[in-house]
Design a protein around this nucleic acid. Structure first.
Length: 600
RNA sequence: GGUCGCGUAGCUCAGCUGGAUAGAGCAUCUGCCUUCUAAGCAGACGGUCGAAGGUUCGAAUCCUUCCGCGAUCACCA
């Protein structure tokens, strides 16, 4: 099967070889390469050979050269039906038979565009990684959607993927929530308050901050400097004391910590479930925060790091254009970097087939990851060649940065339910859901609401920052998730109504409608789009591809009758084509973590 | 100040491994539901691609400088 590639596989190759042959015969010159581009919509043709680069080898008028090559191709290459030359562009019209061949070869193919997983090529993708002192917000949503989608894309491109997160479950931040709950909570629990666990704990994080600020104000009033007050506020000292107790394993503190983190995990689980993201394995900072120190000591012996007089350990990255960076404090305790070194090594030890790691972390940590990756390389790990920081821009509000403590965040749970509500309102207004049960409707509102939110976030290039205006709701029309879902639902409606055997073989002598050809060309791009998205870690490429496909389909749908077509062969083809477009939409959206509905 | 990223239509974004007159959506305005779902289709309007140089037959795309916005440069995470 591989030995004899179908013709469509090698269209560019065939034409390329023929162009080289033509130029060889016509001008006695051997071209190294031939440059192609898709033909612009406003010219006749399907694929275009660019003549300009040849001028370096062939002297002459580009139009004349284009015409000569065109004549040669038309005569010698089956796939080339016609040609025209505009300036230095040789536009080739490709035979319908070529596209029908292509379609015939993929029509029964399951998961067209995906590559089968090669199990020896594994990568671990880290995303989410929240602190356990407050609920998730819009920034986490972008992180989650990106990490999940990139994982799915990598899988579709043939990688084995482990999805993971490191849960920041220890440190001063959780002690603040714990302390405030102890002081002001009066034993409140998620059950007693009806609050989701993460929201309950977040409430006490805010309470801590308020009490802290009040104490600072008090101290400042009684003559303390602001700077000193911020360091000496009694409640802060208490929190620090609590952290020390936790680190020394104090039973009561650890019990409280476990209880409150448990509440938070229950809350997070619900949000993750609602968002539709999941993880294969979890790491907890309370387990990993001591890791890495041995690696640093080992690296110190091997001369990768050096020790300063006070006992702190550093790495010199001035050769790389960076500074010196500390990797171990003078008291021998770990810093963030130490921990990340240890965690990376731990992960590769836990999953020996890992060839690389992807970190989904905001661009504010670009520097940190540059340093981390350099260190791991200097320590000599093979897999350090395959580290990637999936760095994404912040999600800002019109008022600026989101700040949990000041309550200027867009809460994840609120946002999701708002989206569902909007979907419900629009659906009710349009009133197309006769015969749907209440349960089916609620599920559909969720599908559409989440589709809108996820597409809205994923269609933007990850590295760009997003400005989210809560006043202007996310669109449901135009270049949006619901528009694409709607097209899918339309196709399913056609398939339900096609009451004949749609799986019979096609008549390969069909004459293609212009719109059908455009659709086939777009479908043909899907596999390479998946690969490109994987190489660039960019769900946005999938989103944009899908939008183009869907726009093309709707135009086709509007112009061409499918079930109303009298010619049985054409009707069959159009139904099969529509079905395939539906499958590609579904496959593409699966890579974005978006579900498609049967009706809407 | 050093480093990194971003700057394309009123708004939100594509295009960026250099190629034809820079594309979508939203908003505004025109048409199209007796035919497969109008969350749709067709069209109009809207651009000194931040600025200036350079490389090239050809630059939104590559290089340099400058301007604007953001991030970062902790014995914090």
């Amino acid at each position: 099967m591989l030995a004899e590639k179908p013709r469509y596989m090698s269209l560019q190759k065939v034409i390329s070889q023929s162009v080289i042959k033509a130029v060889g015969e016509l001008y006695q010159v051997e071209l190294p390469t031939v440059e192609f581009q898709p033909t612009r919509k406003d010219f006749e043709g399907d694929i275009t050979v660019v003549v300009f680069p040849m001028l370096r080898f062939v002297k002459g008028n580009p139009v004349e050269i284009g015409n000569k090559i065109g004549e040669y191709l038309q005569e010698h290459v089956f796939e080339v039906a016609k040609f025209n030359v505009v300036k230095g562009f040789l536009n080739l019209v490709v035979e319908d038979g070529y596209y029908l061949d292509f379609f015939n070869s993929i029509v029964g193919q399951k998961e067209y565009g995906y590559v089968k997983t090669a199990s020896n090529d594994a990568v671990m993708v880290e995303y989410s990684s929240p602190n356990t002192n407050k609920p998730l917000h819009l920034g986490h949503i972008r992180n989650n959607l990106l990490g999940y989608s990139v994982s799915e894309i990598l899988k579709a491109a043939g990688k084995k993927v482990y999805k993971t997160q490191i849960i920041n479950d220890r440190g001063i931040h959780i002690c603040k929530s714990m302390l405030a709950w102890q002081k002001f909570g009066e034993g409140e629990t998620p059950e007693s308050s009806g609050l989701k666990g993460d929201h309950l704990v977040g409430k006490y994080y805010v309470a801590f901050d308020q009490a802290y600020k009040a104490q600072i104000a008090e101290l400042v009033d009684s003559g303390t400097s602001k700077e000193q007050a911020e360091k000496e506020a009694p409640i802060l000292l208490e929190a620090q004391e609590m952290l020390r107790k936790w680190e020394s394993g104090d039973a009561d503190t650890v019990a409280l910590w476990k209880k409150m983190n448990g509440w938070v995990y229950d809350g997070f689980d619900m949000t993750y479930k609602n968002l539709g993201v999941d993880f294969d394995t979890l790491y907890y900072e309370s387990d990993t925060y001591l890791l890495g120190r041995d690696m640093v000591k080992d690296g110190l012996e091997r001369g990768v790091f050096f020790k300063k007089e006070d006992g702190s350990v550093w790495i010199d990255l001035t050769d790389e254009g960076l500074d010196e960076k500390i990797v171990l404090r003078s008291d021998g305790t770990a810093v963030y970097m130490t921990q990340d070194i240890g965690t990376a090594i731990q992960r590769v030890t836990d999953f020996p087939d890992i060839k690389g790691l992807v970190y989904t972390v905001g661009n504010e940590q670009d520097y940190h990851f540059r340093v981390l990756f350099l260190i791991l390389k200097k320590l000599g790990y093979q897999w350090a060649q395959q580290l990637y920081h999936l760095s994404y821009g912040m999600v800002d509000l019109p008022s600026g940065k989101m700040k949990s403590r000041e309550g200027t965040v867009v809460d994840a749970d609120d946002l999701i339910s708002n989206m569902e509500q909007t979907a419900e309102e629009i659906s009710k207004e349009l009133g197309k859901l006769d015969g749907y049960s209440e349960g089916e409707r609620i599920k559909l509102y969720r599908t559409i609401g989440l589709g809108a939110l996820k597409y809205y976030i994923l269609k933007v290039d990850p590295k760009k920052r997003i400005l989210f205006n809560p006043e202007e709701s996310v669109d449901f029309q135009g270049n949006t998730g619901p528009f694409i879902q709607y097209t899918y639902a339309r196709i399913q409606s056609i398939l339900r109504k096609a009451n004949f055997d749609v799986s019979t073989a096609l008549d390969m002598t069909l004459e293609l409608h212009e719109k059908e050809k455009e659709l086939l060309k777009q479908i043909q791009l899907f596999p390479e789009t998946v690969q490109l998205a994987a190489e660039n870690y960019s769900p946005a490429l999938i989103a944009n591809y899908t939008y183009d496909l869907v726009k093309e389909f709707n135009s086709f749908y509007q112009q061409v009758s499918i079930l109303g077509e009298p010619d049985e062969n054409k009707k069959l083809f159009r139904v099969q084509l529509s079905s395939k477009v539906g499958e590609v939409i579904q496959s593409a959206f699966k890579l974005l973590g978006i579900v498609v509905p049967e009706r809407m």
